[in-house]
Design a protein around this nucleic acid. Structure first.
Lengths: 231, 231
DNA sequence: CCTCTATTTACAAAAGCTTTACACTCTCTT
DNA sequence: AAGAGAGTGTAAAGCTTTTGTAAATAGAGG
């Protein structure tokens, strides 16, 4: 699995630099915002963050304000950092929706351990499959399970066959060149005399034909393949 | 919402008494164990706990030992308490799987805020991931007691087998890659030529097959495993 | 030392991808 | 209109990678 994405919102450039270097080798990628507004902008930019590290003392918008605004729309775990060791601050932050609270100056290893604990806990969430099924006429393809159904029958496709069908169905009504198929599905440039794609398409047609009368994949000689949809 | 169930493992009767009275009006029901062994017994009794408060200094079995044992089988959030304010202790506890760590003497309101934050965060996870039983066709998995029944027969699964089955069942109908299994269940990146997962799946299938005719775990060559549910 | 698990090793088997071979088709050329 | 040449369909063979699983090994816990 890929690295964990963190967002650090803190105006202390020395600290952000330090943490960035400290956390990188542990498998974290750190984005940095130096004030509250920039922090919110980044957090709501659409990029997914596994965890947000939020300083309390911030220019423009303080940490509590940022926390309050973010919590309206985002459930990303938030670990707050503060210069003050004030208990009331901690309590307030946690009550307002922060997941953890660490007072500066902190032991780097403790921060790292707390980040790890939070990310670990969150990773228990089942991988949300936001991908929805792709259905054209009587063929339905499910990216989540990598299964394809034709008139309700499960097709036993290989990985490559599935990928080619997926690509063609995504581009239904449009011509897809062999070059494109080769690069996107097989991950290599199409070489002269390479017949692999032809073979996969042939097998795919054979399997589709078991449960389907009409020919879905049309050949455009010298150009590529086309997935047909009924008018 | 009904009251939250907490388990407090601490030998200081004065403190347990005090906390019990302090937390009750806030909607928490507190069970108490006064030593490590009793704590484990209670935690694994089958009763569901939303959170476990665990002291480090304990008779019979210290807090770290209890943590280690519980984490083999249970994902219940654990907040550790310690008399020592030692950073290393905190780090160790968090690395070993605790979710939070608070040094004694603590501000009661901070404890309450941290409990609240953890419970709040856990309630965002799908209930099935840590508490509710998960039943798919003739296989039923109980997270609280760590048991799996197949057509009413108890399966003798190892911890790892249980975790893999749990992960697959949580994601039933979705492909789960070996990388994900390795990271979530074994806690390490999948190395090339690592056959551990294959072995666990193989054993799991063998045990499931004892009481079950249909194959539940389908291999998607080069992609991962898929837990099947009947249409 | 014994037991229970997890991991590694080793090898067989299976599955999938590519290549080969040849028939066929389309298009362009003469 | 026939022939040449390139592109395509597909069966079959060959090769590689991945998987299943038994057995050996390593390790933790008692």
């Amino acid at each position: 699995m890929s690295n964990k994405q963190l967002l650090l919102i803190d105006d202390d450039t020395e600290l952000t630099e330090l943490l960035s270097q400290y956390l990188a080798p542990q498998g974290y990628e750190l984005d940095i915002a130096h004030d509250g507004e920039a922090g919110i902008a980044q957090a709501t930019s659409g990029k997914h963050y596994d965890l947000i590290l939020l300083d309390v003392m911030l220019p423009k918008l303080d940490g509590f304000e940022v926390l309050k605004k973010l919590r309206v729309t985002h459930l990303t775990p938030i670990l707050m950092l503060t210069a003050k060791g004030d208990d009331l601050d901690k309590i307030l932050g946690l009550e307002m929706g922060a997941d953890d609270y660490l007072a500066k100056p902190f032991n780097h290893r403790e921060l790292s351990a707390r980040i790890k604990a939070l990310v670990r806990r969150m990773s228990l969430l089942p991988a949300t499959s936001v991908q929805q099924n792709l259905k054209l006429d009587d063929v339905e393809l499910s990216p989540a399970s990598q299964q394809v159904f034709c008139n309700g029958n499960l097709l036993e496709l290989t990985g490559t066959e599935y990928s080619i069908l997926h690509l063609l169905m995504l581009n239904h009504g449009n011509l897809v060149s062999k070059e494109e198929i080769s690069e996107k599905v097989l991950g290599r440039k199409l070489a002269p005399f390479d017949r692999s794609i032809d073979m996969h398409v042939s097998n795919l047609r054979k399997k589709l034909a078991e449960f389907n009368s009409s020919e879905k994949i049309k050949t455009h000689r010298g150009a590529g393949y086309l997935y047909l949809v009924e008018a």
